[in-house]
Design a protein around this nucleic acid. Structure first.
Lengths: 353, 353
DNA sequence: TATTAGCACTCGTATTGCGAGAGTGCCAAA
DNA sequence: TTTGGCACTCTCGCAATACGAGTGCTAATA
């Protein structure tokens, strides 16, 4: 009942490692042979009974071996697991997979792909949350008589484009003028700032809308409003299909929930959001995350930084029974590489050596 | 052996309809009761034997009923099926789901979502191929000392952004000048044109690169080159998870191939490309499409038009045993609605009434 | 000649029973 | 505290069986 003896710990470790390898309940005989300890199966059985009392392992049925519980994995990951960081050559090899070519979005996709290929699980990458990103430039382009394309560019290279439908008709000249004014007035300030300024402007006086610059204000207000609800694409998921061949997830119903979560993205985003606050690698095991759809899964996450600032997290989703020992360093390194690529510097290898 | 008698046709139709409903082999007794014809099971059996000889149906084993073959479905879809177009109210109801708000990309996603929700299958929407789209504007923005963000805007409202790494360093002023020159020189011409012009320019004389405008040329050349290999995002797939609960696709291996096809997108794009040439609705049944991964599936496609010009196709992917009668009109209408939304006109309802 | 009833036959599915194997828990001995 | 021994439990796989659905064929019928 009390704390784990070192011997019990070692056996738990051996059991979980074994179980992770071949996914079958581990019996006392197997364990006694490869635990490294010189113990008879009978002794191992006694210890296993203790571990079961502690809620760390359980038996699927009477005459099967034991399998780890979520709590067991927790202890394993937190205190028993020694992750060996990848060596330099390895990191460099991965580095070339993540070069900044093409659009920023493509880079995120590469990262997600990389995660999924290396771990053979599903990779998830959150789109950078740069609330403090500086506004750089806005462009208005007439698409048709009642639709205007707005292109919003931030300092970090992100480009948002939206179509809005203003009530009034504006001439192209109006729009150019509006853009110029707006770029001059707000260039360099953070998006948050700009939003606040727009809000203040709106509340000041509706008559003010009649002034010369009202076009700019009207357009900008609409453009920023249109951007509010774009959580949709804040997450890049790749390699979902890897999860199909995992025996634990053979239950179609579970798989469906999981895939729905990948499409909806809401739950996963919450989880990543949450793990961003924790600032550091995190492992959510089984139902710990609190999301129904992730019941049978574990999620390993790591935050990534751009120019020293925390901007997002990435990770992988897989079955509870995954090779944490390998997955954790991979997620870790990918986060560093992505941050590095987004920062435009390629110094990561030197930094860590 | 000869052509189908009307009676045989009717029985085939009844059999397939029945099979589509509950997915189980249909026996002679069942069929004799609900074919509408007053025939004894024995007679039905005779006809079924004929149909089997013709390769339209087959029995999974001796003592099961019959199921349609791919060829059977083909005949069914081509000559027996009467699709009832959706009524106006229905169309209008769908119309509001596809309003052009937010980015063009979001509109395509809505369409794909709509398809998948209405059919409970996977929706696929090809990104418009507007080779003849006119070049409108290009912008160069410095991201860091060696990376430049290029934003390319076409007349139809598409915005491409890419990051390139030029060999030389250009000052921001250089880049502004380059963009201005380029916009002036090429604005309004089609992308194809612009590409050709760039190619010609390059081949003319390398010394020309030293002229005043070489910056523009260098940048543009790189930008267009970077855009070459972006097939990746030419397809929007939604609702894949609907396919998980379909019993025919219970085979994990098949599912995996299918989901890989959704991620790779290459095969599906080829198929849609192909169906674009045919100009009209198309149904690919089972292996007809020629792609291994779609072996167990059917694909229903319809082209869509923007301002009268054919620019892409969309459709759904589902099991061979799908409710064609309902799926076909849904795909049809969605294609019209998407085209209409992209064209910026909302006249579709009137047009078809 | 086309249709139908009857019947023997085939084949997949579900059920049952049984034995083998794996693993446990507990007790008594070391 | 550890270990060997032993009875017990439970799953899994296999074979045997019965059942039911559906067919194909033949002969009778309209």
């Amino acid at each position: 009942m009390a704390a784990l003896t070192p011997r019990a710990e070692q056996l738990l470790k051996a059991l979980i490692e074994r179980y992770i390898i071949d996914g079958e309940p581990v019996g006392s005989r197997t364990l006694s042979r490869q635990s490294g300890l010189e113990l008879s199966p009978a002794t191992v059985r006694n210890v296993m009974a203790d571990l079961e009392d502690l809620g760390l392992i359980r038996s699927p049925h009477t005459s099967a071996g034991r399998v780890p519980t979520a709590l067991g994995y927790r202890v394993f990951v937190d205190t028993l697991l020694k992750v060996r960081p990848l060596d330099l050559a390895e990191i460099q090899r991965l580095g070339v997979e993540l070069v900044y070519e093409g659009s920023p979005q493509q880079l995120l996709e590469s990262a997600s792909n990389l995660l999924s290929q290396l771990t053979r699980l599903a990779g998830i990458v959150m789109v950078p949350r740069q609330r403090q990103a500086a506004f750089r430039q806005i462009e208005f382009l007439t698409l048709s008589h009642d639709r205007v394309l707005v292109i919003l560019i931030t300092d970090d290279g992100r480009v948002d484009n939206r179509v809005i439908s203003p009530d009034k008709r504006y001439s192209p000249a109006d729009l150019v003028e509006a853009a110029n004014y707006f770029n001059g007035a707000f260039g360099g300030r953070t998006l948050e700032d700009v939003k606040q300024a727009l809000l203040a402007e709106m509340q000041r006086d509706s008559d003010a809308m009649q002034r010369a610059m009202s076009t700019a204000m009207d357009m900008a207000r609409r453009a920023f409003a249109a951007g509010e609800d774009q959580d949709e694409d804040d997450l890049v998921v790749r390699g979902e299909s890897n999860l199909l061949k995992i025996p634990e997830l053979g239950d179609i119903e579970k798989l469906r929930n999981l895939f729905d979560a990948f499409t909806t993205k809401r739950d996963l985003l919450h989880l990543l959001d949450q793990s961003m606050r924790a600032a550091g690698m995190q492992v959510f095991i089984g139902g710990e995350s609190g999301y129904q759809s992730l019941e049978a899964c574990s999620v390993v996450t790591a935050p990534y930084h751009v120019d020293g600032k925390l901007v997002g997290t990435l990770g992988v989703v897989g079955p509870t029974r995954m090779a944490y020992e390998q997955v954790i360093p991979i997620v870790d390194v990918t986060a560093r590489l992505l941050g590095s690529a987004l920062s435009g510097e390629h110094r990561i290898v030197q930094e860590r050596s």
